[in-house]
């Protein structure tokens, strides 16, 4: 699927990435108990770069991006985000988390708060923005995701697609430097996938650094600077999207692509 007119977007998207490194993973290893889920991961992400991570389930792609804001703790190797090494220092972790937005498969909106309260909570309590100002920021982002009229409702009253767009707006309200998306469209009905992808494409045109775990290959072709294929804890192959889809190098990639592209 193409979420927006392909050519135009490609033109807007060109050369968004700079040479400044914003995330660096160096020989990162992680185990869940005795299960080795990430194996010697090396990854460098530049500012403004848009990366799509794909791979079969259980390949460690979600774990990879969850390590970047330390929702998961890695055991070996270094992760440097925005110049700060992720270690046991809680202050650093809280700081990194406020700089890195994350969107989940299951939205994870706060059900006891209205939409506008969901959006202003972070700015008010973490960034110490005055309430009125936080409200203005929140409304501007709600307009960007095209649901300003839902501001006073509660998450339970919204459709899945609307909830996910609120979740994106909630992350953006913190004015993050990096956005992580963990299968943002996997829990949605087909007609709602488009509205969420539209918002993400629009976000990509603003030059946001994005790492997206997704199975939406059309989306990957449209916006990605780089596609990463993971399998069994390895980064098997990474390439720019055209090469990746048309000319995969490894057998594992070929097998995976043949499985998902036949439908």
């Amino acid at each position: 699927m193409t979420a927006v007119d392909g050519q135009e977007t490609q033109a807007q998207l060109a050369s968004a990435a700079s040479s400044e490194v914003i995330i660096e993973l160096n020989e990162v290893n992680k185990w869940f108990g005795s299960f080795h889920v990430l194996k010697d991961i090396n990854l460098t992400v530049h500012k403004g770069e848009r990366i799509v991570v794909c791979g079969p389930s259980g390949s460690g792609k979600s774990t990879l991006i969850r390590c970047i804001n330390r929702l998961e703790e890695h055991q070996r190797g270094d992760i440097v985000v925005d110049g700060i090494i992720l270690d046991k220092n809680l202050k650093n972790i809280d700081h990194i988390r406020s700089e890195v937005g994350m969107v989940f498969q299951s939205f994870n909106l706060f059900p006891h708060l209205s939409i506008i309260e969901n959006l202003t909570l972070g700015p008010i309590w973490v960034r110490k923005v005055p309430k009125a100002e936080a409200r203005d920021i929140a409304m501007s982002y709600l307009e960007r995701v095209k649901i300003p009229e839902q501001a006073e409702k509660y998450p339970g009253q919204l459709s899945g697609g609307q909830q996910q767009r609120v979740a994106i707006a909630r992350s953006l309200c913190m004015n993050p430097k990096i956005m992580l998306f963990d299968e943002p469209t996997s829990a949605l009905d087909p007609e709602m996938i488009k509205e969420v992808l539209d918002v993400m494409v629009e976000l990509a045109t603003t030059g946001m650094t994005m790492i997206v775990v997704t199975h939406e290959m059309g989306f990957a072709k449209t916006i990605a600077d780089r596609v990463i294929f993971m399998d069994e804890g390895d980064i098997v192959e990474q390439n720019e999207p055209n090469e990746f889809f048309n000319n995969p190098k490894s057998d594992r990639t070929k097998l995976f692509l043949s499985q998902i592209l036949t439908h």
């Binding site: 809280d94 700081h95 994870n108 706060f110």
Partner: peptide, 14 residues
């Protein structure tokens, strides 16, 4: 749900 804790973390709440 665990997701609520994670969402709270990702907006930087201690």
């Amino acid at each position: 749900p665990k997701g609520q804790y994670e969402a709270a973390h990702t907006i930087g709440l201690g």
